[in-house]
Design a protein around this nucleic acid. Structure first.
Lengths: 265, 265
DNA sequence: GCTGATCGTTCAGTCAACTGAACGCAATCC
DNA sequence: GGATTGCGTTCAGTTGACTGAACGATCAGC
């Protein structure tokens, strides 16, 4: 390491990729997605990803031809093709379609803000959102990620994992990300809640990500052997939330979850 | 599908890509997105994209490591990373955020189904959708594509192009895709409408994509020199549509378009 | 207007990725 | 049951992609 300031660990040291150009191209896309403005120059990307400029230039040319990125003057941004591909992914998930259909005709959920999310490591990714409650407008969009410890649906999904994996992901003294005064702070706190969630069959969030907002969530039994873990959540305003309401919402969430887990209903 | 899968010429004959592995990887993603079920085996992909199996195998390994695809047994599907990247693209578009904000507080549009779309060759891609009208549920989702001749927003966007380019894209005898009895059939028909749209400043669709549904649309003046062409549309049921309603909707659409085209309003 | 730095592109040499045939394996057909 | 078809993987040879330094272009500073 002659270079003192290694910007990150962009290269894979041990494992050689079977198609390095593809791995590098993916790193370029990640760098663009992670950057603050979403606009980077060739030199920026070359530095960020840690590959020579000339190689980066070739990658960018190929990515641009594939519409995966777009060049505007000297700056590169993510390309619109990514929207199409992401949409193709979501469109293929029957669960998302079924989710919309169910929410529309449910008695309570049809008037609430409901979301379906997927577990991705220590985060959840929101896949779709049904907005039946005009007063509850979420700041998070489809595709956004959220640490599992900060949302009901994250806790519901993690509670389904093997306890051994949970212990590994969240040691007792693990420091968790904090968004509000009520956010959980340590792995021990989280695991105490996970035990509760396992017993009662649903998860809750009491202003842990946003003050004034509460959530309820359940996990969907995995359809088939493969496939990602899905979860469902309802968001409500703390000011108007009542336990009776909550009980009914959980009931409908569980019904939807069961229907999603056992297709061809 | 604009391109019926031609098994013969999947390769770029004349132009050699500066990073063929990336171009090929993109072709693999396209093939997965275009396939009926979204699930293809290595051999399927090898045949579809027209590259040797061993090479395809390496590509798939790299793509899987990057989470751009996912393997389930012997079948490959698009990966969840694509949802993140697509979301990152949309999240960077200030126009989408502003679109939501405006729709929520508009007097008429807040109770309608509104969409924002972008021109992509001879198609439009839907970027976001605001659902203020419970009775109007669209079958098309975010990221879906639609031929420009079949929707109001497509016609609004094409009407903005140079007439020379329009003539090239749509010769008089060009055959247009047809979805309903009212769909436009020829380039001549389309261009007649485009002239009308240029004069009145907004576009319309009279059951050309879906029977019983009408649309109004305007284009957004391009922000800055670069950047994609954006368009806005409102969808209404033909049965309840009135011209007075339409006039008000067009007014608000144009207001939003103006605001999107001139930021920091 | 000149200097300096930074940016993106070009080019030839070298190394590594791609090819294609052969392999093991599983499911299918007769 | 045996044969056959199709799948995905392996491996060595060869072609083609990647590197890195030098080039011209652009912009900021004095």
């Amino acid at each position: 390491m002659a270079d003192s300031h290694a910007p990150a660990s962009p290269e894979k040291p041990g494992a050689a990729s079977p198609a390095p150009a593809v791995t590098r191209a993916a790193a370029v896309l990640d760098a663009l997605a992670a950057s603050a403005t979403g606009r980077l120059t060739l030199s920026d990307l070359s530095r960020e990803v840690g590959i020579p400029k000339s190689s980066t230039s070739n990658l960018l040319l190929a990515l641009e031809e594939a519409r995966l990125i777009s060049r505007q003057g000297a700056e590169f941004t993510l390309g619109r093709k990514l929207v199409e591909l992401g949409a193709a992914y979501l469109g293929r998930m029957d669960e998302v379609q079924e989710f919309y259909r169910y929410c529309e005709q449910a008695s309570v959920l049809s008037r609430e803000t409901v979301r379906i999310a997927m577990l991705d490591g220590a985060n959840v990714i929101y896949l779709a959102r049904y907005e039946g409650h005009p007063a509850v407008r979420l700041t998070s969009n489809i595709g956004d990620k959220m640490p599992v410890s900060l949302c009901a649906v994250g806790k519901a999904l993690v509670a389904r994992l093997n306890w051994h994996d949970i212990e590994e992901m969240f040691p007792d003294d693990a420091e968790l990300p904090v968004l509000t005064p009520k956010s959980l702070r340590t792995g021990a706190e989280l695991k105490a809640q996970l035990r509760e969630i396992r017993e009662q069959g649903f998860a809750f969030e009491d202003e842990e990500s946003t003050t004034g907002v509460v959530c309820l969530a359940v996990s969907v039994p995995t359809r088939g052997a493969h496939g990602p873990s899905l979860g469902l959540s309802v968001t409500a305003l703390e000011a108007t939330y009542t336990p009776e309401q909550g009980a009914q919402m959980v009931k409908e969430l569980q019904e939807l979850a069961h229907s999603l887990g056992n297709p061809m209903g």
